[in-house]
Each structure stands twice: as C-alpha cells, then as structure tokens.
Simulated assay, not measured.
Amino acid sequence: MTLPSLTLSLQFADPRHRADLPRHKVIRWLRHALALPGEITVRIVDTEEGQALNRDYRGKDYATNVLTFDYAREPVVSADLVLCAPVVQAEAAVAGKTLQAHYAHLLVHGALHAQGYDHEDDEAEAERMEAREREVLATLGFADPYA
C-alpha cells in the first residue's frame, strides 16, 4: 500500500511534551489517515492556549482535546491540528489508554476532519467517521478507541 506524502510541521508550546510525540510516529499516523497528500501543522499546546483557541473559534470556553483548522482538501489536504496536552493526558488516564494510543486516535480524528469527515450533525456521518478511525487505528496496531 502506497501512502500519501506528508509535509509536517510539529510544534510544541512546551518542549517537555516532545518526548510524548516522536515525529516519525506522528508522520506514520497521519499518513495512514490521509487519502491525498497533506501539508499539516500539528501544535501541542497547554490548557490556556487550547481554551483560548476553542473559545475564539468555536465559542466554547474550555480546552478541548483536538481542534482542526482545515484550509484545503484537494489536491492537497492543508490543515492545522491543535492538541491540548493536559486534556489528552487526562483523557488517556481516565480511559486507561496509553498516551501514544490516545494521541494516535486524536491525530487520526483530526486528519479525518480535515478531509471533510464530521460527527457533529449527522448520525450516519458520525458512524462513517468512527468506522474509518477504527480501520486506520487497527492498521496501525491500536485497539478500537470506542470499545
């Protein structure tokens, strides 16, 4: 299977989180989620930045796990994915998942949003998105994130 190419900018608001997300793994996870070549920036932020972005762009005044800002879907998927490290860490602990498994899920989830998948308004589309997430994560060796 030939995977799409990916140009990745990986940014850390706090460099202590760099060890949680090795670049080669982020590239692998995102390439498996992409149907077309991608130009993606992944930024790992703290609670304050995550909350400000969620408030300013979604009108929700709390930090969320992942935000997707998609700019183009064809011929190249162009997007920014913003993950809030403290939220991701807390969710992984509560769910009993490894931090890497949760980051992989959220990066796949964000990449699918960048390609037009949605789970907010349509139950059938939500099921289609979750099925694709399960498929990609299984290919990567991760358990069903919804089990």
Rank of each mutant, 00 (worst) to 15 (best):
Y146Q: 11
I44D: 05
E135W: 02
L8H: 06
H109T: 03
V87C: 01
E49C: 02
I40W: 04
Q115W: 00
P22L: 00
D122K: 04
G96D: 12
A138C: 05
F69S: 09
A143M: 10
I27S: 13
Q100T: 11
L137K: 06
K25V: 04
R18W: 02
M129Q: 11
L83G: 08
V87Q: 04
S5D: 14
V76E: 13
A92I: 11
R28V: 05
R18M: 09
R16E: 07
D121P: 00
I40T: 10
G116I: 04
E135F: 07
S78Q: 15
V82P: 05
E48H: 04
Y146N: 11
A19W: 01
G116E: 07
R132H: 10
P145Q: 06
L53G: 03
L36M: 14
L6M: 10
D118V: 07
T98N: 04
A79F: 13
N54Q: 14
P37G: 04
L6P: 02
D122I: 05
Y103N: 12
L6E: 13
V108I: 14
Y117F: 14
I27E: 15
P4A: 02
R16L: 05
S9V: 14
E49F: 00
A35I: 02
R31K: 13
A101E: 11
V26Q: 11
G50R: 02
D46T: 03
T2C: 07
E74F: 01
A95T: 05
S78F: 13
D121H: 13
L99K: 01
V108Y: 00
K60S: 07
R128L: 01
P4R: 00
H105W: 15
D122Q: 09
L67M: 10
M129A: 02
R43F: 03
L30S: 08
R43Q: 13
E133K: 00
T68M: 14
